[in-house]
Amino acid sequence: MTRLLTCKQFLQELNEFLDNELDPAFRAELQRHVNECPNCWVVCDTTLKTIKVFKGMQSQPLPPGVHSRLWAYLGKRCGCKRKDESDITEV
C-alpha cells in the first residue's frame, strides 16, 4: 500500500517520529510523507531544532547567595553541612 498520510495525521505523530518511538513500518510511512511534503519537512526540521536549542541551553550558575543560603537553611533545619567546602568548585 502506498497511501500517503495527511499532514494532520503526520503532525499527530510528530512527537513519536522525532523521539524515534515508532515501529519501523509506520516510521517509514511517516518518513515518506515528510520526504514528499515540504511543509511537514519544515515543521519537522524546525521542531527538532527547537528541542535541540533548548536542550543545549547552558546551565546557568546559581545566582549569587542562593548556594550559601541553601546550605544555611539546610544547616538550620536539618543540620546538613557541606562535606568539604574546599573540595567543591563553585561554577
Binding site: L11, Q12, L14, N15, L18, V43, T46, T47, K49, T50, I51, V53, F54
Partner: peptide, 11 residues
C-alpha cells in the same frame, strides 16, 4: 506536542 509546536512557532 502542543508545547513543542508552540515553542517552534515562537522560535
Amino acid at each position: 506536542l502542543r508545547a513543542r509546536l508552540q515553542l517552534r512557532e515562537k522560535l
